[in-house]
């Protein structure tokens, strides 16, 4: 598999704010790649650099081997971007919008493909409706359609499901998954971590303009310990200090991070010996949210070490 997107040592500052602080990433052809991070981490800036909307101060970026500055025409032909903001041109209908967007990419007579996209995004009935008359979710679909008119091998979706209802979200992911299975490389930024966990094969986490974690989704989940035990004690009884030190509290419950099931028995024995009575108990598997919180709090999960 070749390299779909290469990002090397990219630095970008806006005034005194260093939005990207030496980001390097390589994404292979056919990957479903997740780009996660809190607001202001630099995700959109990175995507904008890739799309040529923002010019990096240092570093290079390429799409399917084409440099985004030196060879911008070829690079942009190979990239489809769904922007984060819900933008639209109020003068045109859905079909006009898509025809015009095709023309910008040098494609004429694109109606067969446009029809196919419209159908897949459930937009066929809205084809001749003016953009202004569409609901927010419908406008979002048109944005996705616009990014696909030129059949780009690399598709970037910048928070495509923000403010979108469940039905559209499901439909959208089904379509994007299909595109991915047909060979399109997909890069996704999202705030919905369960989406990233379900869809992305590999994930990079950004914090303050740096990549702080980069691994397959499976490895990230595995490396960050296995399970958590959530406990609630009757009458708010206090734990002995030794046990108390191992727990964190979340919404009034005690949370123990476990690396294996063999830790459970001694833990429960300790609680019993202290005379505490358990009111509620839950054992949960680590999800991407735990990893995300851990990474953002500075736990190193990218180096291969298994943190506790």
């Amino acid at each position: 598999m070749g390299v779909a997107v290469s990002i090397q040592q990219v630095v970008k500052s806006f005034g005194s704010l260093r939005a990207l602080d030496g980001v390097s990433l390589e994404i292979a052809e056919g990957e479903f790649f997740g780009l996660l991070g809190p607001n202001g981490a630099g995700k959109t800036t990175l995507i904008s650099c890739l799309a040529g909307l923002v010019r990096p101060d240092q570093g290079t970026l390429s799409v399917m081997g084409c440099d985004v500055l030196a060879d911008y025409r070829e690079a942009r032909r190979r990239l489809g971007v769904v922007p984060q903001e819900l933008v639209f041109d109020p003068f045109f209908s859905v079909r006009e919008t898509l025809r015009i967007q095709s023309g910008y990419f040098g494609i004429r007579h694109n109606d067969d493909w446009i029809d196919e996209i419209l159908e897949n995004l459930d937009l066929t009935a809205k084809a001749d409706v003016n953009m202004r008359r569409l609901s927010g979710g419908m406008k979002r679909r048109v944005l996705v359609a616009q990014a696909l008119v030129h059949k780009p091998p690399v598709i970037v979706l910048d928070e495509p499901t923000a403010g979108v209802d469940v039905e559209l979200r499901q439909g959208l992911w089904q379509f994007v998954r299909r595109l991915n299975s047909e060979g399109h490389t997909v890069i996704l930024t999202t705030h919905y971590l369960e989406e990233a966990e379900a869809l992305c094969g590999r994930i990079a986490m950004l914090k303050q303009g740096r990549v702080v974690a980069l691994d397959t989704t499976g490895n990230l989940l595995a490396r960050f310990s296995g399970h958590t035990l959530n406990l609630r004690l009757k009458n708010g009884a206090a734990l002995p200090d030794a046990l108390r030190a191992r727990a964190t509290t979340s919404l009034g419950a005690l949370v123990f991070r476990l690396t294996g099931f063999d830790e459970i028995e001694p833990l429960l024995a300790g609680i019993r010996q202290a005379g505490c009575v358990i009111d509620d108990l839950r054992l949960t598997q680590t999800d991407l949210e735990d990893v995300f919180v851990g990474v953002m709090q500075g736990v190193d999960v990218g180096s291969g070490a298994a943190p506790r």
């Binding site: 799309a51 040529g52 909307l53 911008y72 025409r73 070829e74 942009r76 032909r77 990239l79 971007v81 922007p83 903001e85 933008v87 639209f88 041109d89 109020p90 015009i100 967007q101 910008y104 990419f105 040098g106 616009q146 030129h150």
Partner: peptide, 17 residues
């Protein structure tokens, strides 16, 4: 208009010189 509404991206993303 396209700058204020943000739709200017539609002409900035394609390979137009």
């Amino acid at each position: 208009q396209s700058k204020v509404t943000g739709s200017v991206v539609f002409v900035l993303l394609p390979p137009i010189s």
